[in-house]
Amino acid sequence: MCEENSFHGNFGPVQFDVLKEIGNIGAGHAATSLSTLLNEKIEMHVPGVEIVDFDEVMELAGGADKEVVSIYQRIGGDAPGSMFFVLTPPHADRFVQRLTGTPQGETGAEIDPEMSISALQELGNILSGAYLTALSDFTKLDLSPTVPFLAQDLVGAILSVGLIELSQVSDQAIVIKTSLMEGEGDQKEFIEGQFFLFPDPLSYKKIFTAMGVLHGD
């Protein structure tokens, strides 16, 4: 169908399931770590795997123009790629309030910005560390994390960083997206964030080989 401009013409349902499972396991572990950290129940959304145009990648995260707080981590090792944890600025503030013990409802304006940045960096460390460890255990691939980076900027500007590698071989991206949510009942969406995983083009073959589901060639 799209052989001429994509690297994933030979993806079947089995490969999609594997990628879904990767998102599932990674975010599942991240949810558990966050749950321990905040001493709250964290729920995880059913993961989605989609092949979309670059513009649609941005739409999945709320639109290229939307302002978000994002933790970006480059993955090294056997299957390099880029990983993002994306949350809205109000959700990021709420997280900082929870972690630093600032009372709820007091707008959060009093939080020391440096404290806020280090709390979010810690969030990044914990979530991406848990996600990667789970992936590594699941695939038996060596996936080494690099230092996570924090940015508050436009979705398009942030996520395009993860599309650069990909854009050399394709006009489309495979998005492995999972959401975390804290709280129950009325408290739902208290803290919500999304993971985006973009394996580098060559990493798919390695992941599928490791999982014994390499298609065709």
Binding site: M58, A64, D65, S160
Partner: peptide
């Protein structure tokens, strides 16, 4: 007018 959104390294 003509517009594009979310330029990062682009």
């Amino acid at each position: 007018t003509i517009r594009t959104s979310g330029l990062g390294s682009c």
